[in-house]
């Protein structure tokens, strides 16, 4: 699992930011999910995922994003995705996930 780690930061005033690195695949998707779940455990409505250090997401990884979005939606919050590379941004656009959550540079 050297190719995947997660940095998370959470302050009282700001929405939690999760910054995974490496690849998000079937192998670590559940770990990723658990990390997000932990960040949202205190009932936060918004969450930012910083993808600056991610270079590959597979279908199950993608599923985590969808699930995360649905979770926040149910709380009335928003998912924001930052720093995706061109490939990933293209993916989000093509499969129209950018219509569901915010994809920023």
């Amino acid at each position: 699992m050297e190719d995947f780690w997660i940095m998370a930061q959470s302050t009282a005033t700001q929405a939690p930011v999760v910054r995974p690195a490496g690849t998000i695949t079937a192998l670590n998707a559940d770990e990723f999910r658990a990390a997000l779940q932990e960040q949202l455990a205190d009932g936060a409505k918004d969450l930012t995922i910083d993808l600056s250090d991610v270079d590959l997401i597979d279908s199950r990884g993608l599923a985590v994003f969808v699930v995360c979005h649905q979770t926040l939606l149910a709380r009335g919050g928003t998912l924001t995705v930052l720093g995706a590379d061109a490939n990933l941004k293209g993916l989000f656009r093509v499969i129209r996930l950018d219509e569901h959550f915010r994809v920023l540079d």
């Binding site: 998707a29 559940d30 999910r33 997000l36 779940q37 949202l40 279908s59 199950r60 993608l62 599923a63 985590v64 969808v66 699930v67 995360c68 979005h69 649905q70 979770t71 149910a74 093509v94 499969i95 129209r96 996930l97 569901h100």
Partner: peptide, 20 residues
């Protein structure tokens, strides 16, 4: 055009969906 189904995938508290 394309569309990804976001409904019925569950939440972070449950298991990850088996299909997307």
């Amino acid at each position: 055009d394309s569309y990804i189904s976001t409904s019925g995938v569950g939440t972070l508290d449950s298991k990850l969906p088996a299909e997307l």
